[in-house]
């Protein structure tokens, strides 16, 4: 087992080195922005994967955590002048608390019913925020442009700082996911996903561990939301609380491969690329092409590879040795 670990560590470091150097090679701001979008999607996918992948509780309402993150850090910044770095943490904590309150009743529901409940909760919150005067309703909130620099997490001259912040956030999210995967919690999540009743018979409290999963997942999702707010300087219910956001987050992980550490990163690379190119081809957002693409992706994954792209790669790796063996037999 130690023989497998070494190349994995080397591979991970190589990947990180590549990510660190990439924006120094690709200097076009539009392309850098595209890379940032991929990292943002990857970070959300990795966060969603903790509850939806490992623990197998499919949430189609993660926009609610994303929105809580975005609105919390933005409101704290606007009203109290709090640094978005702290606002990001605050958003994570608020989202975690909300997720536990929401999970308590919703985790009584199984499978599709849980997924439907998450959609309902996200819709309710979206309607509430849209009608909230304090949160400026459908008009949305803007962050002031004047204050730039690291402390304010606002950068007007270069995309580079955003790139490294989101890369850092992605790395932290992956590390958290990795730590869970390796600990007893990861084993319990997979047991709950496979056979909840058998897990209970082995002493695993379903409610406790599902709540752990959603609390961690929502924490990181909210941090992603805060980052979005800082990058765009403007949020409204349509951009951070919409159903499309929830579906996109889930789809990134499902497309890449649920329950795998880096599947969601792969999924983000593919989905965001397709999305951006379709935007060039069919025009800007709001035309609904992104929804058509999501639907197509869901159908393709469901029919051809329920284990996502990672599943396909895994299958290939399994087949190649057997193909080699066959070739040797023939020779």
């Amino acid at each position: 087992m130690t023989t497998i670990h070494l190349p994995k560590t080397v591979g991970a470091l190589a990947l990180l080195g590549f990510a660190l150097l990439l924006p120094l090679v690709i200097q076009d701001p539009a392309r850098q922005n595209f890379l940032i979008l991929i990292l943002m999607g990857a970070q959300l996918g990795v966060a969603w994967n903790i509850i939806g992948g490992y623990a197998g509780q499919v949430s189609l309402g993660h926009a609610v955590f994303y929105g809580i993150g975005a609105y919390t850090s933005t409101m704290l910044s606007l009203k109290l002048g709090l640094s978005p770095w702290l606002g990001m943490l605050a958003g994570g904590v608020v989202a975690s608390a909300f997720s536990v309150a929401m999970g308590w009743p919703c985790f009584r529901l199984k499978g599709h019913y849980f997924a439907m409940a998450t959609i309902a909760v996200a819709e309710i919150v979206q309607v509430l925020v849209t009608n909230s005067e304090t949160l400026e309703g459908a008009v949305g909130l803007s962050l002031p442009m004047g204050n730039t620099g690291v402390a304010a997490m606002v950068f007007s001259t270069s995309k580079l700082p955003y790139y490294y912040i989101i890369l850092g956030l992605l790395v932290v999210t992956v590390l958290a996911s990795w730590a869970i995967e390796r600990s007893h919690i990861g084993y319990y999540f997979r047991a709950i996903k496979d056979e909840p009743e058998a897990a209970r018979a082995l002493g695993v409290s379903l409610t406790r561990y599902k709540l752990v999963a959603i609390a961690v997942s929502s924490f990181f999702t909210a941090m992603g939301g805060s980052f979005y707010a800082q990058k765009e300087m403007f949020i409204d219910p349509g951009s951070v609380l919409a159903t499309g956001v929830s579906i996109k987050i889930a789809l990134i992980a499902i497309l890449g491969g649920v329950g795998t550490l880096l599947g969601p990163v792969l999924g983000a690379g593919i989905l965001i690329t397709i999305e951006e190119y379709s935007r060039v081809l069919f025009g800007s957002t709001g035309s609904g092409t992104d929804m058509i693409i999501y639907a197509l992706m869901i159908i393709l994954v469901a029919v051809y590879s329920p284990a996502g792209v990672m599943g396909l790669l895994h299958e290939l790796r399994r087949r190649i040795p057997s193909l080699r063996a066959k070739a040797e037999v023939r020779a």
Binding site: R190, A191, D194, A198, G259
Partner: peptide, 9 residues
């Protein structure tokens, strides 16, 4: 009675 192993593990 009807086995419930964790099939993906």
């Amino acid at each position: 009675q009807i086995v419930r192993v964790f099939h993906s593990m």
